[in-house]
Amino acid sequence: MNNPFLKIDNLSKNYGETQALSEISLSLYAEELLVILGPTGAGKTTLLRIIAGLEAADTGRITVNGTDITHQLPAERDVALVFQNFSLYPNKTVRQNLEFPLQAPGRNLSKTDIANRISHTADLLRITPLLHRPATHLSGGEMQRVAIGRAIVRQPQLFLLDEPLTNLDAKLREVLRVELIRLQRNLRTPMIYVTHDRVEALSMGDRIAVLSEGKILQIGSPEEIYQQPNSPTVARQLGYPPINTIDVQKRQNQWFTASNHAIMAADHNVPSNATLGIRGEDISPQGGEISATIEVIEDLGASTILLANWAGQPIQILTSGEQQWRVGDEIYPSIDPDRVLVWRTTDEQG
């Protein structure tokens, strides 16, 4: 690939004893939308704030187009940050909120330029009717549109979005998600999008970086992350129902569970202790040899999730909604062997 637009090298940050970020290295390419996916407390927000310049890293370097910006003030970086809690200026109207970044010293925009940019941005986000309203008189969705407007009206060289849809209700979240993707494609400005939502990550990202406990576990396209996660932790970030992980031991070319059930054949070139990752859609409820009992049924409409106890393991099976199941039914789960992920067991993964 060509040279990255943004490059982060070995970035670390501690808060006292707590390590928030540990040796983060990643690149962002021109026009790319990179999703940083991770659970709460993984360090996602800290990473964004360091890129924006609101916090300083302990060690590491950030470069934009080859220029070192590690020690620049936020104002010098020309990045726009959309906060999870919107952070509109409450004593200003929507128009004044959009004007404020354009009036910053050093931008030297004429009044006409400012007015043009605002009307263009307002059209784009369909907030024109709201322009005269005080920022305090907006609904959550309107606030977030204005917050996104405040970011794009500046035409920055980089967008940072910190869980921008988390505080919105589910329906609005879907609408704005689609709008955001379209917006980013049109503006062609690189964007880093932080979320803990697997659906947002899969549907929006050109690439996904999975962050957990301050470390980047894997970076890749959504397909790569979903199909070839390099650890159980990464695998658990994506997919619903969550991936089934089963600790196994190899004996006589069979995988044995802790309860001593041989659940499937093992290749000869794999380690003797491993964790198997099996997605719910890769198990069918019939056709296997070991019986299981259905304990919980979660009906999703088009499909059904069965939670069953199988070979001493709780497993989740995703089935089509056609067949009727009842709690207590006996099933014989079978695994699609080509789809099983095998990870060498290390102490860390326990």
Partner: peptide, 13 residues
Amino acid sequence: AYEEAALVDGYSP
């Protein structure tokens, strides 16, 4: 967050 928004918007502390 208000101050931080202003910093990112291009203002000095």
